[in-house]
């Protein structure tokens, strides 16, 4: 059974359709990269996984639970899915450890000691041990994003969502974040990543989804996608971002 499954998902903002009949899935342990021009609906699609964006038609099934079903306990479902945002979204009034501890304590019910131990372990993993007591405003973008990844991992998620995790970063900081993501992928984490980093896609992705105007235009294994993308739109998009 797939970890994440989209079945004919459609979404409208008023009269404007942002998602058109999207169907795809992410298997357990699979890394799927979603790309496409801005406004193509890729961020909206990924936010449907943990119901940060409601959708009007179709079904999203995560970890064999239907996201849109009225009986689904959203907080519990979201706690199992880690999410990393474009602008990090660390909580500026809490230090790094508090950022990692908050949901562990409030949602998972861990004790402060348990949570702190877990946080320390994860900070070590993303190479941020020395910054445990700093506040987000005192850190660089790359450091903040690594902390944000650790915050998601602290919940022991069954899958991780990445929404353009490197597009707000200065170029010299992109690699420190991608390195953490590559490592995570190689350990077998189920990942769905909206990103334009094609180097990352080539290295670890199993499948690549290309979206345009709310539609899934391409959905193919990595080798096939980079070899011969079938649609003209995907070819245009690839040539634009690769020659730049």
């Amino acid at each position: 059974m797939p970890m994440i499954e989209f079945k004919n998902v459609s979404k409208w903002y008023g009269h404007f359709q942002v998602l058109k009949d999207c169907t795809t899935k992410v298997e357990k342990g699979e890394v799927v990269v979603v790309c496409g021009p801005s406004g193509s609906g890729k961020s909206t699609l990924i936010k449907c996984v943990n119901a940060l964006e409601p959708f009007q038609q179709g079904e999203v099934i995560v970890n064999s639970q239907s996201v849109g079903a009225p009986t689904t306990q959203l907080p519990q479902l979201r706690a199992k899915i880690g999410m990393v945002f474009q602008h990090f979204e660390l909580f500026p009034h809490m230090n790094v450890t508090e950022n990692l501890n908050l949901a562990q304590i409030k949602v998972l019910g861990r004790s402060l000691d348990e949570a702190t131990a877990k946080s320390q372990m994860l900070l070590k993993r993303v190479g941020m041990t020395d910054h445990a007591h700093k506040f987000p405003g005192q850190l660089s973008g790359g450091q903040q994003q690594r902390i944000a990844i650790a915050r998601g991992l602290a919940m022991d998620p069954v899958a991780m969502l990445f929404d353009e995790p490197t597009s707000a970063l200065d170029p010299e900081m992109i690699n420190e974040v991608l390195d953490v993501m590559v490592e995570l992928a190689q350990e077998g984490m189920t990942m769905m990543c909206v990103t334009h980093e094609m180097g990352f896609a080539r290295k670890v992705a199993h499948r690549v989804i290309f979206m345009d105007r709310g539609e899934i235009v391409e959905d193919s294994p990595k080798a096939e996608f980079f070899g011969t993308p079938r649609s003209e739109r995907a070819q245009q998009f690839l040539s634009k971002i690769l020659h730049h």
Partner: peptide
């Protein structure tokens, strides 16, 4: 930023917890 509310919710905090802690 709108992302703060989303980040709280993505961690599994309830709306009440998101207001209270974030």
């Amino acid at each position: 930023p709108r992302g703060q509310r989303l980040a709280g919710m993505a961690l599994g905090l309830t709306p009440l917890q998101t207001y209270r802690h974030v």
